[in-house]
Design a protein around this nucleic acid. Sequence first.
DNA 1: AGGGTAAATGCAAGCGCTTACAATTGGCAT
DNA 2: ATGCCAATTGTAAGCGCTTGCATTTACCCT
Lengths: 337, 337
Amino acid sequence: MKARPTLQDVSRLARVSTATVSRVLNEPDRVRSDTRAQVEAAIAELGYAPHFGARALASNRTSTIGAIIPTMENAIFARGIQALQEELAGAAYTLLVATSSYDADREFQQIQSLIGRGVDGLVLIGEDRDASVYQMLQERAVPFVLVWAWRADAAYPSIGFDNRASAVEIADHVLDLGHRRVGMIAGLTDGNDRARLRVAGVRDAMAARGMLLRDDQLIEAPYTMADGAVAAHQLLAMRDRPTALICGNDVLAVGALAAARDLGLSVPDQVSVTGFDNIELSGAVTPALTTVHVPHRRMGQTAGARLLAHCRAGEALTGAAFKTHIVERESVGPPPR
Amino acid sequence: MKARPTLQDVSRLARVSTATVSRVLNEPDRVRSDTRAQVEAAIAELGYAPHFGARALASNRTSTIGAIIPTMENAIFARGIQALQEELAGAAYTLLVATSSYDADREFQQIQSLIGRGVDGLVLIGEDRDASVYQMLQERAVPFVLVWAWRADAAYPSIGFDNRASAVEIADHVLDLGHRRVGMIAGLTDGNDRARLRVAGVRDAMAARGMLLRDDQLIEAPYTMADGAVAAHQLLAMRDRPTALICGNDVLAVGALAAARDLGLSVPDQVSVTGFDNIELSGAVTPALTTVHVPHRRMGQTAGARLLAHCRAGEALTGAAFKTHIVERESVGPPPR
DNA sequence: AGGGTAAATGCAAGCGCTTACAATTGGCAT
DNA sequence: ATGCCAATTGTAAGCGCTTGCATTTACCCT
């Protein structure tokens, strides 16, 4: 077990000062090419790799961006994270991904942990979080952007789309077809603005037609197919069975599809089902899911680009609004009869 | 912009030495409870969080385990990673996840980067990698385990299952039903032992029956549904059309399902399709996929447990073999006629 | 050759934390 | 009270790297 070589070992081998070695690593053109070659040879011979912690400590920067997503269990955030990572990699920045399991406390811990790790910036999902969190972020002067959220009057740089407006759109789509009895399976809205605003959007669309989403027509469910199926069962067992199920996300919608199949109900003939997010899964199920496409990759990429511009060029962090659009597939049709 | 509070700030506020603060953070019972309370109050008041790099530098450990997976784009590794993370969290260890995009060089970079970050251990997927990588790992004395792989004569601690044997099993399942014309859609086998061994297993099963997998009956495809669909189209267009498509993983299998639907072929009546991995998706598609269930969570959990035992108790790293089993769903039936 | 300037390199002071070791304190038996 | 031991707490030396400043070197002009 050889000890890990240090900058000093390298400097000794190359017969230069540690400062020079450090320069070779960080600003190569500030050292003469023959010294540089010498140093590089020593580095190679020793298999030297800088100690990240020491560097972070000394320089107070890490070339690292942190992102905290609710979960990795399903593909919701995967594409966006991938795009973010690609964007950062292009600038030799590293992405640290942590998960909160949709838990506010856990998210806070992870934020702390990432700050402790010295991230130069943070990407957070959505905007619902305790004011104290934002306060801490600002006191610590940690640059951050919010993704998957956007409002005209957002208090923080948000890169995303208008969840509420998009929900109105998909609800309109359903309502325009003539559906009058609808049920909604929403994600857990507590501390989750995406879920909350999507419900609000559906309510808006219904209200615009003088309709109302009754309490028993709305079920909140955790983020799994099984929970979506349970909720759908419950909704579809009602005396005035809904002719359309509007789901807060694709995973729940796929669960709803399964429930309909269990009950022998044909989709979309007897009941229509809509999703939200357009994850890969949605196109693979039968019937393929009509859903709202959200700009996964563009959000990730833009978040990365903005953060980089801020960290390297000092540009102010600003938000960005993207559009969503409905992807019409096979799970929606006019109401029966 | 307040500067980040340091241990010293806390010690000052609490009127104790920095050593004491450090102790309440690391070995709470070594400090008297009233001093501890005092320090904790100061920590809370300042919103202090330790500087990770400084700690790593001073203590030479990070309580961090790194994992490098090929991709986050699909759910293949998600469950295992989640389980790993949970296991580690229980011991106050942090998981750093990096992705290699199925690229050996990129994986090597990521290993370097994680080592530079001072991870106490590493979790790697599969065993196919350059000897120099293993050599480096050993020179640096970085503890690591391999998951998703297992062989009786494995050179390194492997926690997984026998891909080849499992492939034999699923192939037998298909062959036992009477299929004689089979096609295989494999993942890219280059540098990917899982994909390679699964092909080998299918060949074994066929050989045991005096059959042979012809070159034109085997197509390798990248890890996407679309690629699976393309490959399936090609296979199903052959004059002696296969009656069964054995796929190297579920994503490809779902693509194959879509291709069959495109071609108006009923699954499993006209063509059977099998998957491998049993990701959540497999149960949601229609027809539901018959596939090989692999112990995602147990692998992740065990990998974490072994690494922890090694880091904390010095236990030697050993491998573990798990069993897979076939999940019979709806995509496999006897050959037509 | 001498002088001046810019480029290249070295010096050394930390960055925030852990930890061996030293100093102090408290409790208890004598 | 006195003495002793164990429990607490403090002191201070780094951990490996970056970086402002000082020093040396190289090069060009006169």
